[in-house]
């Protein structure tokens, strides 16, 4: 039976795309069949981490939503096209797919103007899970709490909310947790990203868990090396021993064992 995992954050720039890509990659490395859907239609980004650009990506989620092709045609097989980044070589032969969103500004503004049929999205994802015999479907969402995001929360078995240890994220995360509870999400996790190393991570974890009553799956450090790498690769595959990577592997472990 496949699990749908939405990665969400109240504000943008928390590291959603990087976290989604690394989690999906780590779960695929464990031998699972995994797909990622980029539902951040307004500001797609995760494809970059897999070395895709507008030319290479072919059909997009937008084509499917516009009724121009079946969803299976959109799925890009990453295990067969890892590109030349060093870390991604580990993914050769793995069962990992990406359903990218269009980078085309016309396509983006069309969706923003007309919206899309949430039922169609839902059906598409269902088809995908069956067609690719997925163990896990990861959804990289648009930040905030718009209708599309609420839908992705509804269809998720697990909701992972990313927050930075920053007062501005705390308030929005509280609202998101409440909404998710109201929608009866079966399982929820918090993931703290970009934590300054001068924090005591254990204390951060305990404080966050106590404040929201939600389990914290990991506290990941602010990672200058990731900024350096500049979205060119899957960080945890390139630098497997880096504290950030160790943290993300812990989250992947949590998913594989408990969710």
């Amino acid at each position: 039976m496949s699990k749908t995992i939405s990665i969400h954050s109240f504000r943008g720039g928390t590291g959603k795309s990087n976290t989604t890509a690394n989690l999906a990659a780590q779960v695929a490395m464990a031998g699972k069949r995994v797909a990622i859907v980029d539902t951040d239609i307004q500001s797609p980004g995760i494809h970059v981490l897999f070395g895709l650009d507008e030319k290479k990506m072919g059909k997009t989620l937008n084509d499917f939503l516009a009724g121009r092709c079946p969803i299976e045609e959109v799925a890009f097989n990453i295990g067969e096209h890892v590109g030349d980044a060093q870390g991604r070589q580990a993914l050769i032969g793995k069962d990992l797919w990406l359903i990218p969103s269009s980078m085309n500004s016309g396509e983006i503004s069309k969706i923003l103007r007309d919206g899309y049929d949430v039922n169609m999205m839902n059906k598409g994802l269902k088809t995908l899970r069956k067609a690719l015999e997925l163990d896990y479907l990861f959804i990289d969402t648009h930040p905030g709490l718009n209708e599309e995001t609420l839908l992705s929360i509804v269809i998720s078995d697990v909701l992972i909310i990313i927050l930075r240890p920053d007062q501005q994220d705390f308030q929005g995360t509280a609202v998101t947790v409440d909404i998710a509870r109201s929608l009866d999400v079966p399982a929820m996790r918090l993931l703290v990203n970009k934590a300054l190393t001068r924090y005591d991570f254990d204390q951060v974890r305990a404080t966050v868990e106590a404040s929201y009553g939600v389990k914290v799956s990991g506290v990941l450090p602010l990672n200058e090396d990731m900024v350096d790498m500049g979205s060119a690769d899957i960080f945890s595959l390139r630098y497997p021993d880096h504290p950030w990577s160790v943290g993300i592997k812990g989250v992947a472990q949590d998913i594989l064992e408990n969710l």
């Binding site: 709490l145 209708e147 609420l150 240890p165 007062q167 705390f170 308030q171 509280a174 609202v175 409440d178 909404i179 109201s182 300054l196 001068r198 924090y199 005591d200 204390q203 951060v204 404080t207 966050v208 404040s211």
Partner: peptide
């Protein structure tokens, strides 16, 4: 010495208001 202790402050009134405005819609 300056290891920061994280403290989380949440404005509960605002939180409730925002949740209510979201859950109050027909869509929700």
């Amino acid at each position: 010495a300056q290891v920061r202790m994280l403290s989380i402050q949440i404005d509960e009134v605002k939180r409730q208001e925002e949740v209510e405005s979201l859950t109050g819609s027909d869509f929700f």
